[in-house]
Simulated scan of single mutants.
Amino acid sequence: MIAVHARYRGREKGRAQLVKRSAYALSTLPGVGEFEIVGVEDIRAHVESPGDALNLIMALLSDGNWAIGLGITRRGGAVHAATDATGRKPATVGVSADAEGSEASDIAATFALIGHVLMKRTYEGREATALVRRGLNQNEAAERLGISKQAMSQRLQAAGWHAEQAGVQLALNLISRAAGVD
């Protein structure tokens, strides 16, 4: 079982409403169950697969205002493992897994690197990577932004797009391994 727990650490006013709206929006992601709202700042949900967990964590990391816990168990208790793993600082991912070895710390380290790449991104970089992430190729994304293909390529390079993609693939592999999914 896989679950994600997120604790809002931003400075927005009306945080209870923001957390509720976020829970609703995040529950529309594929493979994400209904979120349980725990207190004012915390939400948690089960996810169906390692890929679904990855997509949810990436959405939370991209926002930059959430401390995230990932729970991976082979039988029961994933939500509680996720809660126990939730970090104290925004844009951090804690991991609790009943897998062998250092898989939990490897997953957390991978997300720390991805989070670093995401937080260093400019507005233009976020705009460019969002379009490519949605499935547009560089030519289509450049056209949508009204820039040249070369400028689009430069934006993606400066945004660390290739490093993000390598980190995402590594995170998916590690989560899958920890969950016992081939």
Rank of each mutant, 00 (worst) to 15 (best):
R44Q: 13
I57P: 02
V38M: 06
R121F: 06
T110N: 07
A45H: 01
F111Y: 15
G39D: 07
A67I: 03
I72D: 00
A108Y: 02
E127K: 14
E48S: 15
D84W: 03
Y123S: 08
T86S: 04
Y123A: 15
T73S: 14
L60D: 09
D42N: 13
E100A: 04
V95A: 03
P30L: 06
G76T: 08
T83A: 09
T73C: 04
V38F: 11
E124G: 08
E34Y: 11
E100V: 11
T83R: 14
I43C: 04
A81M: 08
W66E: 05
T73W: 02
K120W: 01
G69L: 09
M119C: 05
I43A: 02
L56N: 06
A81V: 09
T73K: 15
A67H: 07
L136V: 11
K89G: 00
A53Y: 10
G77D: 12
A82N: 02
G64T: 07
A130G: 10
K120P: 00
A91E: 00
D63N: 13
A128D: 06
P50F: 13
G87R: 14
I107A: 02
R126L: 14
V40R: 10
L29H: 06
N65T: 07
G33I: 06
A53F: 11
E103V: 14
G125V: 05
K120Q: 15
H80N: 06
V40W: 03
D52I: 03
G31H: 14
I43D: 05
A108E: 10
R126N: 09
G125D: 07
V79S: 01
